[in-house]
Amino acid sequence: MEQFAATFHIDWQIILAQAINFAVVVFVLYRFAIKPLKKNLDERKGVIEQGLTDAKAHRELLATAKHDYEKVLSDARTEADKIMKEVKKDAEKRRGELLEQAQKEALALTQSAKKDLEAEKIKMLTDAKRELADMVITATGKVLGGAVTKEIDTKLVEDAVKHI
C-alpha cells in the first residue's frame, strides 16, 4: 500500500482539494446552469401545453358556435316559412271573405236597384194613367161640350181608366 501510494503520489490533501473542486462544480453547475435552464424548459413546456389545450378548446368552441349559428339560422328559416304560410292562409281567407262580402253587396245593390226600377215603373204608369185620364177628360169635355159637370166627368173618366 505504501509503495502504491508512493508510485502514484497519492496525497490526501490533493484528493481533498479535488473533492472540493468537484463540489464547487456541482454547486455552480446546478445553481447557475441546470436549475434555471430546467425551470425555463419546464415553464416553456407548460406554456406550450397550455397553448395547445387552449387552441383545442377554442377549436371546439368555434365548432359549437358554428353549429349553434347554423341551428339558429335553420330555426329562423323554419319560423319564417311557418309565418309565411300562416300569412298566406290568412290572406286567402281574407280574400274569400272580401269576395263574399262584395258579392253580397253587389247582390243587395242589384236588388235595391231592381226595386227602385219597379217603383219607378209603377210611378210612371200611375203618372201615365193620370195624364191619360186628364187627356180623356179634356177630350170628352170637348166632345160633350160641357154638358156634364166637372165632378161627373172626373168620376166617369176615373172609372174608365180603372177599367183599362
Binding site: H9, I10, I14, I15, Q18, F22
Partner: peptide, 8 residues
C-alpha cells in the same frame, strides 16, 4: 492524476 479520479 490518480488523486482526482480517486476523489471522484
Amino acid at each position: 492524476d490518480i488523486n482526482t479520479t480517486i476523489a471522484l
